[in-house]
């Protein structure tokens, strides 16, 4: 494996890990991330905001 492959692969792995982290985080919060295509209504944000308060 050459250096370019290693660096790009590392970046890709980081991006994938970040995407998975985001999915886990939004699902845990019950936030908007749980809608595959959120309409932006933010109804689902209530739980998240209630927890914060």
């Amino acid at each position: 494996m050459n250096a370019a492959t290693a660096v790009i692969a590392l970046i890709v792995v980081f991006c994938l890990a970040y995407a998975v982290y985001n999915i886990m985080k939004t699902r845990k919060n019950g936030g908007c991330g749980s809608c595959p295509s959120c309409s932006g209504c933010r109804v689902c944000k209530i739980e998240e905001e209630n927890k914060k308060n």
Binding site: V20, T26, C35, P36, C38, S39
Partner: peptide
């Protein structure tokens, strides 16, 4: 605001769930 919120959610979803699923 309504359009921006919905469009951003669509992009966000493409960058998370869709990205992981495509991988």
């Amino acid at each position: 605001f309504s359009t921006g919120g919905r469009a951003w959610a669509f992009v966000k979803k493409a960058g998370t769930v869709i990205f992981v699923a495509c991988a």
